[in-house]
């Protein structure tokens, strides 16, 4: 009996040694990011140039990422939160300051975009990666006539074929915009009106979906979806792109901006700087924009892109950034609890 125990210990010891050693070989940068947000060939080129391998871990929502970090997840060197979460993470002291003098390519970022950034003025903690708007995508072969407006969710004839994002700020923001209010409204009255609008929309949608809508519209499962253009078009084969119309409703919508940040306690800060600078390089940025079909936040890269983006920076003029509303978030939660969970 004793001998078999000894054997067991030796075997498990060997397994542990093996697992540990495989993790320690080579230079590695641990990235926590949205899924399919950076093309693999860009990461391969980064490895070729610097010898640093990027380990790509993904999240589906800012909230998921934030909850995981807040609960004590460690080991990430670079994260891609949206603006409102950057400001929360700054307030909570979760981010490392960024020394912009170490980023030779920072100068290429569009100054007009930098001016709009209110969540981190002067970019002391965050470097913008991509920006865009949340819109509506329509399958034109199934829905022939429609208005490019949020009112599409009021159409009874499309009942059971539409989805709204499973995202509190996006959905309430859409209803607020539809009513002509700010997406960051802190007025109880305005939010109550938005709740009424959403009750009407909810009758016609099939579900709140933030995971599957891209695949859903591509497979013909849904006809009208609320979501992010890049997630939708990455699911649709290029030759079928003209069958789908992605638009930002005429009333305007929400604007998001995703940023590169270095969390406190990151072990490979130098690698993270190298990576951020690499991403900001115009030729690399242009390749990413082509991959995502998003407008380039980088003026120099705009000259190098090959594909037409789903929408341009000009299309975003009616849109508004989702900002952290602090304590007022309770009003949003109340509306959302009512809409999403019925209490």
């Amino acid at each position: 009996m004793r001998r078999s125990f000894l054997l067991l210990f030796i075997v498990s010891g060997l397994i542990v040694v093996f697992l540990l050693s495989s993790g320690f070989l080579g230079k590695k940068l641990y990235m926590y990011n949205w899924a399919e947000y950076i093309p693999q060939d860009v990461l391969n080129d980064f490895r070729k140039e610097t010898g640093i391998k990027v380990i790509y871990d993904t999240y589906a929502s800012n909230e998921e990422m934030y909850a995981k970090l807040k609960a004590g997840a460690r080991g990430y060197d670079i994260i891609f939160p949206s603006g409102d979460h950057v400001s929360i993470m700054i307030k909570e002291g979760m981010l490392e300051k960024i020394d912009k003098s170490r980023l030779s390519n920072f100068k290429y970022i569009d100054k007009n975009i930098l001016k709009k950034i209110t969540y981190d003025p002067n970019n002391e903690y965050s470097i913008p990666y991509m920006l865009g708007s949340t819109g509506i995508c329509v399958n034109k072969t199934k829905v022939r006539e429609y208005e490019r407006s949020w009112s599409i969710f009021e159409r009874k004839d499309l009942k059971g074929k539409m989805t709204l994002l499973d995202d509190m700020r996006e959905v309430i923001g859409a209803a607020l915009k539809y009513l002509g209010y700010s997406v960051n409204s802190t007025s109880t009255k305005e939010l109550e009106e938005a709740e009424e609008v959403l009750k009407g929309w909810k009758e016609n949608i099939v579900k709140f979906d933030a995971e599957f809508y891209g695949k859903g519209i591509a497979s013909g499962e849904y006809w009208v979806v609320h979501g992010y253009g890049e997630n939708i078009f990455s699911e649709i084969p290029e030759e079928e792109w003209d069958k789908y119309d992605f638009f930002i409703p005429k009333e305007g919508g929400t604007l998001w901006i995703d940023n590169m940040v270095i969390p406190k306690g990151a072990k490979h800060v130098d690698y993270a700087y190298k990576f951020i600078d690499f991403i900001l390089r115009p030729d690399i940025m242009a390749r990413i924009c082509d991959y995502l079909r998003l407008p380039c936040p980088n003026t120099e890269a705009r000259k190098l892109v090959k594909k037409k983006p789903i929408y341009t920076i000009d299309d975003l003029k009616n849109c508004e950034f989702i900002a952290d509303v602090g304590e007022y978030i309770k009003l949003y939660r109340k509306v959302w609890n009512e809409i999403r969970f019925g209490y």
Binding site: E63, Y66, A67, M168, I205, K207, W336, F341
Partner: peptide
């Protein structure tokens, strides 16, 4: 319920996930 449920088939597991992530 997340994948085949609809707008009105939230179960306790989904509610817990929502409270942990979005509602914080």
């Amino acid at each position: 319920p997340e994948l085949v449920g609809g707008r009105d088939s939230v179960m306790l597991g989904n509610l817990i996930a929502w409270e942990i992530t979005t509602a914080r």
